[in-house]
């Protein structure tokens, strides 16, 4: 059990390090002029960070498929809300 425990703790610290690196990258990227791509880069990094937190810290990796489905469901419905609202605002 101890080796398992150590393994889990080591994984948590690894994820934490990755999150900090991504934080530095995203702040740095904001200073590079990319035009419309700035927001894309920022959001991609945010999605990666959020996925790491959800997958490891929130134990999605060892959850039942139905729980993963609910987690994705919330995101999917948010996409519906944003997309169809934007369909109006952008097409006026």
């Amino acid at each position: 059990m101890d080796s398992h425990a150590d393994h889990a703790v080591r994984r948590y610290f690894g994820i934490f390090a990755a999150l900090l690196v991504l934080l530095v990258i995203t702040v740095g990227a904001a200073y590079v002029h990319l035009g419309a791509a700035n927001i894309v880069v920022a959001l991609v990094i945010a999605v990666v960070k959020a996925s790491l937190v959800a997958w490891v810290f929130m134990h999605l990796r060892s959850s039942t498929p139905i729980v993963i489905l609910f987690a994705l469901g919330g995101v999917f419905w948010l996409v519906i809300l944003i997309l169809l609202t934007a369909a109006d605002f952008l097409a006026r």
Binding site: D88, F89, L90
Partner: peptide, 13 residues
């Protein structure tokens, strides 16, 4: 959006 047909919503939407 079908509640908003005459609200000024985009016709395409």
């Amino acid at each position: 959006g079908h509640h908003m047909f005459v609200s000024g919503q985009s016709t395409y939407a």
